[in-house]
Amino acid sequence: MWQEDRHQRIRALLSTLQRVSTERIMADLGVSRETVRRDLLDLEALGELRRVHGGAIKPADEAPIAERAHTRVKSKTAIAKAAIGLIASGQTLFIDAGTTTAALAEELAKLANLTIVTNSIDVALKMRGAVDQTETANEVILLGGSISDRAMATTGATTVLDIQRYRADMALLSPVGIDHRHGATNYDHAETEVARAMVANADRVVILADYSKIGQRSRISYCPVDRIDVLVTNKKAAEAADFASLKKKLEEIVLA
């Protein structure tokens, strides 16, 4: 069986089963364990699966944002409050879309004299009118682009081009997962391109990731570990298997 045929069969198994064992692939394809191992390595490199002990699973996706908004709320709020300590008056901040960054916006709304550049409609609305309109009020810039079908946010080529008009002191981003090998990763291509552009145009990168995201990897890497200046997470993250490896590679970790 040709390699591409094997890859297609593995994709079909994962699409049906979500998780598939090495033995099942060997039996279905009639190939050796070593051939399966090579195929899984190839497909993992393409971001089409994640290898686990004994087989493979589909790469991590996120639940709908309306559902995520009600999960680990205390953890996300704690991260948002901790991240405020990294921010100084007069700074320009990139903020992407997500439930953790929405929690951050609620905390930022209590501050003043910041410029917020975001693709998140939720973040923009939380920031709007939160401070009296004086010379120290926050300026909120909502990036142009197409409305995502996954979240209340703008995405696409127009959004990425819009980001390139700005230079931010800091990008505060919330990924699907973060691990010591691949850095910050996302599932959706359009959202990833927005985050990647923010990383490229920011002096510092702050990753906001609750404890459940530590050691997790999604389909697309947008920020390698050596580009992350600060990881803000929960104290419970120290229990994650990948935490020690992350700690060795990151310049700073803030535990909320």
Results as ranks from 00 to 15, higher is better:
Arg167Cys: 09
Lys110Ser: 03
Thr159Ala: 12
Asn113Asp: 14
Lys81Val: 15
Glu139Gln: 09
Asn119Tyr: 01
Ala83Gln: 03
Gly90Glu: 11
Lys76Val: 02
Gly90Ser: 12
Val160Gly: 11
Thr118Phe: 03
Gly144Pro: 12
Leu111Met: 14
Thr159Trp: 11
Ser148Pro: 12
Gly144Arg: 09
Thr92Pro: 01
Leu86His: 06
Ala88Ile: 08
Met152Ile: 03
Tyr166Gln: 03
Val160Arg: 11
Leu161Phe: 11
Ile84Asp: 02
Ala168Ser: 00
Met170Asn: 09
Ala137Asn: 14
Asn113Glu: 13
Thr155Tyr: 12
Ala80Trp: 04
Gln91Asn: 01
Gly156Leu: 12
Gln133Lys: 14
Thr92Met: 07
Asn113Leu: 14
Asp169Trp: 11
Ala151Tyr: 00
Ile87Phe: 07
Arg128His: 14
Ser174His: 08
Ala153Ile: 02
Lys81Phe: 05
Thr100Asn: 04
Ala103Tyr: 10
Val123Arg: 11
Asp132Met: 14
Arg165Leu: 10
Leu143Gly: 02
Thr77Glu: 08
Thr118His: 04
Ala157Ser: 15
Ser148Trp: 02
Gly85Gln: 09
Leu108Phe: 05
Ile116Trp: 02
Val140Gln: 01
Ala83Tyr: 06
Met170Ser: 13
Ala109Lys: 11
Val131Ile: 15
Ile84Leu: 02
Leu111Gln: 10
Ser120Ile: 08
Leu172Trp: 12
Arg165Val: 05
Ser174Gln: 08
Phe94His: 04
Gly98Phe: 03
Asn138Thr: 10
Val123Tyr: 05
Ser174Val: 09
Leu161Trp: 13
Leu86Gly: 05
Arg167Met: 05
Leu93Ala: 01
Asp149Lys: 06
Thr154Pro: 14
Ala157Thr: 14
Lys81Asn: 05
Glu106Ala: 10
Lys81Ser: 13
Ala130Glu: 13
Asp122Met: 06
Glu106Phe: 09
Leu111Gly: 00
Asp149Leu: 01
Ala97Leu: 02
Asp96Asn: 13
Glu135Gly: 07
Thr134Lys: 08
Phe94Ser: 03
Ala78Gly: 00
Leu143Asn: 03
Leu172Met: 15
Ile121Cys: 03
Gln91Ser: 04
Leu125Cys: 10
Ile141Leu: 05
Arg128Asn: 14
Glu107Cys: 08
Met170Ile: 13
Gln164Thr: 03
Gly98His: 08
Glu107Thr: 09
Ile141Gln: 00
Ala124His: 09
Ser174Pro: 12
Gly145Glu: 06
